[in-house]
Design a protein around this nucleic acid. Structure first.
Length: 424
RNA sequence: GGUCGGUUGGCAGAGUGGUUGAAUGCGCCGGUCUCGAAAACCGGUAAGGGUGCAAGCCCUUCGAGAGUUCGAAUCUCUCACCGACCGCCA
């Protein structure tokens, strides 16, 4: 949600910002509705003020045994008109709200312009792609050959975009999640959280998935959805609250299942477990003051990168261009891991600074020290990392000529001492 | 699923129709005292919005919505959530 006051004061900047998002200028339309709404509100409040004053006088008159007949009749006559204006005012506010809540966040000045993901800008590459003296395979070829990854059975059980893993591959996924959580909680200061994976619509509105992106979600009851990412429950922990500045930043992490309908991605990444309806992810969320959020964004990205470094996986970091940056984000870094089987870099983490965009929607505030009143917090979220995709990356980068897979050293303790996954 | 009880400011917790936006305590901010601090004492302290150059004035909000009334935190209805017990299940 954007700040309406800011739009009032900076209509040109607002239109320019929307243009970067590929949207037409709309300050005139928006501010027209706003003007209308405020005029209505002013008028309504005048009527309410008169009514309140009269009601008080009636109280006084009755207390002193006087006659209040005239006043009572006057107020009764005001009533219908007041009721009508309440409705008009409410409708206008709803129209304004609908318009505002459909607007994407303002991009940071240093986000590069561009139409789509082909214009994202690479910032750095870390680690060397492994060299093989054989043709590296894709993860699903390796997994199926090992007998530990079964897409046919998953299709029988659940349909497309699911997988059944077993044995050491299943364990490897569990090991990865545990390893990531340990790093974030023991070394990076994140609080481990085990949140619900079903949430109300209001939580999804808070983080910006609703109302625009409902088709991407699994809806399971009147007002409950499966989470597409733990960003939703973790960030909404602070919704509708006023935090103490000295408690910031707050850092949360969680290892959860995520559910995505993948509507509109038919035919994309259909082979293997790169794009599933259900997958696990370790998520990081930070709640900060406005001053802290930029540095926190870099820090969070570094936390995600550190996992890849320790796993010995080569990757690159890109900053998303204007056309590829998500609805709620000001600026997003994607981390892409090298997949030898695909001979390309693929997204494994996305770290976004949302500024106060989500905080406004969910009414998450704090009290700035030494100032009166409250201010909105800033929120950030990042994958640290997508566990399913990390599993893929480990398999492909650590594969050997015979189809076995070495276990990265840091994971061996999590694998109960196993150093290699071989065919049974 | 059933019955009963609850939902009030940052927190705890009064308040059953009239000047209550809301007692009191805690917390927080400022002051007195002190070399400084603690304690004690004094004062201040809800959020959101409209209007105004400003001081200020005004509106809304006591879980949400609808209703009764000149007037609702207080009465009625619906819903949500929390708690207790019962039933069922892990």
């Amino acid at each position: 949600m954007l700040d309406l006051k800011w739009i009032r004061e900076n209509p040109q900047d607002f239109d320019a910002a929307m243009k970067r998002r590929g949207l037409p200028p709309q300050s005139d339309d928006l501010l027209g509705t706003d003007r209308n709404w405020r005029d209505t509100q002013t008028h309504l409040q005048d009527m309410q003020a008169r009514r309140n004053a009269a009601a008080k006088e009636i109280g006084k008159a009755k207390a002193s045994g006087g006659d209040a007949e005239v006043l009572i009749r006057e107020v009764a006559e005001l009533k219908d008109e007041t009721q009508r204006f309440i409705k008009v005012e409410r409708d206008l506010q709803e129209i304004l709200d609908t318009k505002l809540s459909g607007l994407p966040n303002i991009l940071d000045a240093d986000v590069p312009d561009g139409a789509d993901e082909t214009e994202n800008v690479e910032l750095r590459r870390v680690g060397d792609a492994p060299s093989f003296n054989f043709e590296p395979k894709e993860h699903y070829e390796l997994g199926e050959a090992l007998g530990l990854m079964d897409f046919a059975t998953a299709a029988k059980l659940s349909g497309s975009r699911f997988v059944v893993t077993s044995g050491q591959i299943a364990r490897l996924e569990r090991a990865l999640g545990a390893f990531m959580l340990d790093v974030h909680t023991l070394e990076k200061g994140y609080l481990e959280v085990s949140p619900p994976v079903m949430v109300r619509g209001s939580a999804l509105y808070g983080t910006g998935q609703l109302p625009k992106f409902e088709e991407d979600l699994y809806k399971i009851s009147d007002d409950q959805y499966m989470i597409p990412t733990a960003e939703v429950p973790l960030t909404n922990i602070v919704s509708e609250s006023i935090l103490v500045e000295s408690d910031l930043p707050k850092r949360f992490t969680a290892h959860t299942l995520c559910f995505r309908s993948e509507a509109g991605s038919a035919g994309k990444d259909t082979a293997g477990m790169l794009r599933q309806h259900q997958f696990t992810k370790v998520e990081m969320v930070s709640i900060t003051t406005p001053d802290q959020s930029q540095a926190e964004h870099e820090r969070m990205t570094a936390c995600a990168e550190d996992i890849l470094k320790r796993l010995g996986l080569p990757y690159r970091v890109v900053v998303l261009c204007s056309g590829d940056t998500g609805f709620g984000a000001r600026k997003t870094y994607d981390i892409e891991v090298w997949l030898p089987g695909q001979n390309s870099y693929r997204e494994i983490s996305s770290c976004s600074n949302c500024g106060d965009f989500q905080a406004r929607r969910m009414k998450a505030r704090y009290r700035p020290e030494g100032e009166k009143g409250t201010a909105f917090v800033h929120t950030l979220n990042g994958s640290g990392l997508a566990v399913g995709r990390t599993l893929i990356a480990v398999m492909e980068n650590y594969q050997q000529a015979d189809g076995s897979i070495r276990i990265p050293e840091v994971l061996v303790p999590y694998m109960g001492g196993v150093t290699e996954i071989c065919a049974a």
